[in-house]
Design a protein around this nucleic acid. Structure first.
Length: 599
RNA sequence: GGACCUGUGGAGCAGCUAGGAGUGCUCGUCACCCUGUCAAGGUGAAGGUCGCGGGUUCAAAUCCCGUCAGGUCCGCCA
């Protein structure tokens, strides 16, 4: 037996025991005579004492130890002498008096100090990820991830779901995200694609009568990265037969409550349901952060008769004038206000009008153009108080107003510390919500056509089908999202299982029978053999864990993530391959590769 | 594809607005001292293409242009 205990597990009750520990040297404190070293393993730290009066050999060996050496220590657990207890660490009541030291392996001076005391450049952390992962916070994140996935599996097992794997080498889908392609050696000129999600396969499981399927599964999307987006990421994919919207919402909500109770010890309240349109009007987003107010306020009535040109032209064009109120925002200086205007413009708005509520009335670039009624109406409608700052966006396109104010709402709340600083153990820390009643279609400028907001197999709310030919934006889908603290955590829908209905939607999308057959033929064919009504949802595991861990970036909960340019500094992937490999794959590279990650 | 922020001994920063010798701080490393520290302490030392390239200037870490890398965001992500 190489060790008898883990460093971080030792407590006062072990006093008097002879133990053998394995771990890494965290720090060494050499007092000339007695020498201390903290030994770290996955369970935590414990102080080891090398006292020449106890063991000359051990003390001599300790002189050669350096940070991150991997060692085995034998010694006796002792209660620390009075006055030397370290309350900062769980093992602080005891220490181990070393009788022998064995060095498994020495270590070069690490490229950065393994500890929580300072932020280290992200590139460096990823290049030496194995050292980064030695840090207790990273170990805790990966253990939390494991715990959450374990809780998920226990939940679905108890609910009668079956976990089934789906292929990683599959067929490229023309719509949706860009695919990662894999050349097929045995089929010159043809390619597999890595799955964006197991969407079609899980629907086939329903046709196959599996009834309730789930999978913790890696998905791949070749799109630009964000704090919450990696090229390969993990989904909790699930699908159920003989269900309506309520059934999927019920099981998913219970799953989240179960996981939060199991892992975080938090009892979550029922998730509120917010219709998509309401979410856009109130928060300017379909993933609203509900931890704070600052809701968007409609000002069309306030300025209905206005002669202020920017508002007049927008209202005449059927656009929207809306505002948010930044509490105590009148403290902002001219420079900050100009920056806010630029920020609004960069979000697509034509501009931004600010108005400070001061003791002497409104202060605003447009104040001289406002009538008395407009001034008082603005303050009353927005309920702004003295010291507050009103930010107004007007645009002929209502969606632009929402997007700009929605983004500013979140950014300003963060900058001005308006999000309550609750503990993770506090149920109020977690503002889950369902977003429901999504439109089925949205207009796509690039394709100059209507495209599905979710995907083409999404069920339609029957009562809204009348609008299919006239007002496509009024057709609602049987889809739903879960949002948490401003992050989209899950997205799903009831699917179409009726061939005739599916044909109608393809027609509405301008997809011909041939085209549909070529793209999704195998699914459509399967649907000729008695498909059950079915639906599902796919929560993002990386996002769930990041939020649960209090991290702002999913890289912190992924063992080996990639940089924003989808590069892995550890393995230096992607990398060119040699000519033999290309030849076997019938591939000719036209643009000579430039080494990634250089500079 | 675009916007913004960042890049200074091994790590984290300051210096840049207003050009004047690689200047400073914290940590680490090495040597020596030190028997109760706990991110030990003390003394000393080593360690630098100021991301890279170009320009302006008598003079550039500092100003300008380009470029690379990291980050945040917009586009993109059915």
């Amino acid at each position: 037996m190489m060790r008898t205990h883990r460093c971080g597990d030792l407590r006062a009750e072990h006093a008097g025991e002879n133990v053998t520990l394995c771990g890494w040297v965290d720090t060494r404190r050499d007092h000339g005579g007695v020498t201390f070293a903290d030994l770290r393993d996955t369970a935590g730290l414990v102080q080891v004492v090398f006292n020449p009066d106890e063991s000359m050999d051990a003390h001599a060996a300790a002189q050669g130890l350096r940070n991150e050496f991997c060692v085995r220590i034998e010694g006796e657990v002792r209660r620390r002498p009075a006055g030397t207890v370290n309350e900062k660490i769980p093992t602080g009541e005891v220490e181990v008096t070393a009788s022998s030291v064995h060095v498994f392996s020495s270590a070069d001076t690490p490229p950065f100090q393994v500890g929580e005391h300072q932020e280290v450049d992200e590139n460096l952390r990823l290049k030496y990820r194995y050292l980064d992962l030695r840090r207790p916070s990273m170990q805790a994140n990966l253990r939390l991830r494991h715990a959450i996935i374990g809780a998920i599996r226990r939940f679905f097992d108890a609910e009668g779901f079956v976990e089934i794997e789906t292929p990683m080498l599959t067929r490229a889908t023309p719509e949706g995200a860009r695919d990662y392609l894999v050349p097929a050696r045995l089929h010159p000129g043809a390619f597999y694609a890595l799955p964006q999600s197991p969407q079609l396969f899980k629907q086939l499981f329903m046709v196959a009568g599996m009834d309730r399927y789930y999978q913790i599964v890696r998905c791949f999307r070749d799109e630009d990265l964000r704090a919450d987006r990696q090229p390969d990421f993990t989904q909790l994919d699930l699908e159920m037969s003989f269900v309506e919207v309520e059934d999927v919402l019920d099981v998913t909500e219970r799953m989240f409550k179960s996981v939060w109770a199991d892992v975080l010890g938090v009892g979550l309240p029922d998730f509120p349901r917010i219709p998509y349109r309401e979410s856009m009007e109130r928060f300017g987003s379909d993933k609203p952060d509900l931890r704070f107010g600052m809701e968007l306020i409609e000002l069309s009535d306030t300025f209905a008769a206005t002669e202020v040109r920017v508002f007049r032209s927008v209202l005449d064009a059927g656009g929207a004038v809306k505002a948010i109120v930044l509490p105590q925002g009148s403290e902002l200086g001219r420079k900050d206000l100009d920056a806010l205007v630029d920020e609004a413009k960069s979000l697509g708005a034509g501009g931004l009008v600010w108005a400070s509520v001061t003791g002497e009335g409104l202060k605003s670039p447009l104040d001289k153009f406002f009538t008395g009624d407009e001034r008082s109406g603005l303050v009353e409608t927005t309920r702004a108080r003295e010291g507050d700052l009103i930010l107004i966006v007007a645009d002929p396109r209502r969606s632009i107003v929402h997007k700009a104010l929605g983004a500013l709402r979140v950014r300003l709340a963060q900058r001005h510390d308006l999000i309550p600083r609750t503990e993770r153990s506090d149920p109020d820390h977690w503002k889950f919500a369902w977003i429901v009643d999504f439109p089925w279609f949205e207009w796509n400028d690039e394709h100059e056509g209507w495209v599905p907001i979710h995907h083409p197999f999404t069920g339609v709310v029957e009562e809204t089908l009348d609008h299919l030919d006239s007002d496509k934006e009024k057709v609602l889908s049987k889809s739903y999202d879960i949002v948490l603290n401003g992050w989209e955590l899950a997205s799903g829908s009831i699917r179409i299982h009726d061939g005739e209905m599916q044909s109608r939607m393809f027609d509405a999308l301008g997809i011909s029978r041939d085209e549909a057959s070529e793209k999704f033929g195998f699914l459509l064919e399967a649907f000729r053999y008695g498909p059950p009504p079915h639906g599902g949802i796919a929560p993002g595991i990386d996002r769930i864990v990041a939020l649960a861990a209090g991290e702002e970036n999913i890289r912190e909960v992924i063992a080996f993530p990639k940089t924003q340019s989808a590069y892995d500094p550890l393995t230096a992937a992607p990398a060119p391959v040699n000519d033999d490999q290309l030849k076997a794959l019938h591939i000719k590279v036209v643009t000579p590769p430039k080494p990634a990650g250089g500079g």
